[in-house]
C-alpha cells in the first residue's frame, strides 16, 4: 500500500532545461539515448536485409541514401558523438584505479578510453572495408 508523498516539493517549471547552457547540454546528453536506440533499430534492419539476400541488401542501401535518412543519421551521429565524449569525460571521475599505493592519474584513464576508442574504431572499419 502506498501513501501520498507529503514532503515539500519545490515546483520546477516545464522549461527548466532552457535556462542555462549547462542544463541544455545535460538534456541533450540524456536525449542521446534515443539515438542509441535508433541505431539498434537501423543495425537490425541492415542485418535482416543482408540475411535476406543481395536484392534486399541493395534495397536497404537505396533506402539509406534517401536525403531524409541521411539527415536523420547525421543528427544521430552528432548525438552519438556527444554521448561518447561525455561518457569518456565521466570515466576518470567514476573509475578510481589503484596499483598498489599508486593511484592511476585521471588524465591517464581518460587517454586510455580515447586510445581504446581509436583502436576499436579502426579495427571495426578495417573488418568492414578490407
Amino acid at each position: 500500500m502506498t501513501t501520498a508523498d507529503r514532503r515539500y516539493h519545490h515546483p520546477v517549471s516545464f522549461t527548466w532545461w532552457a535556462r542555462k547552457p549547462s542544463y541544455l547540454l545535460f538534456v541533450l546528453r540524456e536525449l542521446s539515448s534515443v539515438f542509441v536506440a535508433w541505431f539498434v533499430v537501423y543495425l537490425l534492419l541492415l542485418v535482416a536485409a543482408v540475411s535476406s539476400g543481395n536484392e534486399s541488401y541493395q534495397g536497404f542501401l537505396e533506402w539509406s541514401s534517401h536525403p531524409l535518412m541521411i539527415a536523420l543519421n547525421v543528427i544521430a551521429f552528432a548525438f552519438v558523438l556527444l554521448h561518447a565524449v561525455t561518457w569518456f569525460g565521466l570515466a576518470p571521475k567514476a573509475i578510481v584505479l589503484r596499483l598498489g599505493s599508486w593511484r592511476v592519474p585521471p588524465n591517464l584513464i581518460l587517454a586510455a578510453h580515447y586510445g581504446a576508442w581509436l583502436v576499436i574504431s579502426v579495427a571495426v572499419a578495417w573488418v568492414i572495408l578490407r
Binding site: 542509441v36 541521411i70 547525421v74 544521430a76 561518447a84 576499436i120 572499419a125
Partner: peptide
C-alpha cells in the same frame, strides 16, 4: 551499455549511415 555504445556505435553509424549512403 553506455561504454559499448560509445566504443562501437560512432564508427558503425558513420560508415553505414553517412559514408556509404553519400
Amino acid at each position: 551499455g553506455g561504454m559499448a555504445a560509445a566504443m562501437l556505435i560512432p564508427v558503425l553509424l558513420l560508415l553505414f549511415g553517412i559514408v556509404f549512403p553519400l
